[in-house]
């Protein structure tokens, strides 16, 4: 589905990604973990073509994404839904309009009733019926995340990227969100990439793990193999030890 080959990226003269080679099969569920500022979010945005890598190849569903000019990248992005780290809810639109926005952009001729019905169905799925007419600023952190998830999934895109779906949420809400994500994934059999710092909860959800440190891959493989990884950075980070290279 997605193939990265030797991706390198620089932002304001600072290398952020270095030689990232990663292959994502259709239908697999990946988790990206790593210390703060290790390039996790940048990698996720690069996969959608929001950043253009300096070197390397990135093939998404058979298309060379960085080679496309910005207006044409939308063809690839339509196959992806993304939940942003800060939710990125449009504060000039109400909740329902926020959820319907990607669908309306993708199908400009879709009648209004159908748009509303689809958005309402999506809000029901994330447990937010009744909040349609609220503004994003009136929602709590967990509710914003759920609106973000509803917006990311409304187009039934084959690839879903969740950047920190549970950051700043309490354990109960975290479990609810992961149940929601698991349900969505089973229903649509989509490829999922999730970034999180909450490793125990994330590991229940994914079957593959990518470990990033300073823009480099330190581990890339099945979730079950993480414990056995010999890399000192991964070893220390996964166990939460204070002694080590970090």
């Amino acid at each position: 589905m997605i193939h990265c080959d030797g991706l390198c990226l620089q932002l304001t003269h600072r290398p952020v990604l270095a030689d990232v080679t990663w292959h994502i099969e259709a239908g697999s569920v990946w988790g990206i973990i790593g210390p703060p500022a290790s390039g996790k979010s940048v990698l996720a945005k690069t996969l959608c073509g929001l950043f253009t890598p300096r070197q390397g190849r990135l093939i998404v569903d058979g298309v060379d994404l960085p080679g496309l000019p910005e207006p044409d990248r939308v063809r690839v992005r339509r196959k992806m839904g993304m939940l942003f780290q800060n939710n990125a809810l449009f504060d000039f639109l109400r909740v329902l309009e926020n959820v319907a926005f990607p669908l309306a952009r993708q199908n400009p001729k879709m009648p209004q009733d159908e748009l509303v019905a689809r958005a309402q169905e999506r809000l029901r799925a994330v447990g937010l019926s009744g909040s349609e007419e609220k503004w994003p600023s009136e929602l709590s952190g967990g509710m914003k995340k759920r609106v973000g998830i509803a917006r990311a999934t409304i187009c039934n895109a084959p690839v879903l990227i969740y950047d920190e779906p549970t950051a700043g949420l309490d354990p109960v809400t975290t479990s609810k969100i992961y149940d929601l994500l698991t349900g969505l994934r089973q229903k649509h059999a989509s490829t999922v990439i999730a970034i999180s710092s909450d490793i125990p909860a994330l590991r229940h959800f994914v079957d593959h793990i990518l470990f990033l440190h300073q823009g480099r891959i330190r581990y890339c493989g099945p979730e079950s193999g993480l414990e056995a990884c010999e890399d000192p950075v991964v070893y220390q980070f996964v166990r939460g030890q204070t002694e080590g290279p970090l």
Binding site: L50, P71, M80, F84, N87, A88, P102, R105
Partner: peptide, 17 residues
């Protein structure tokens, strides 16, 4: 503030310039 809260990225995701 739309840029730092990633709303601009979200717009680009849906193909809006």
């Amino acid at each position: 503030s739309m840029t730092v809260t990633e709303q601009v990225d979200a717009l680009r995701m849906t193909g809006v310039d």
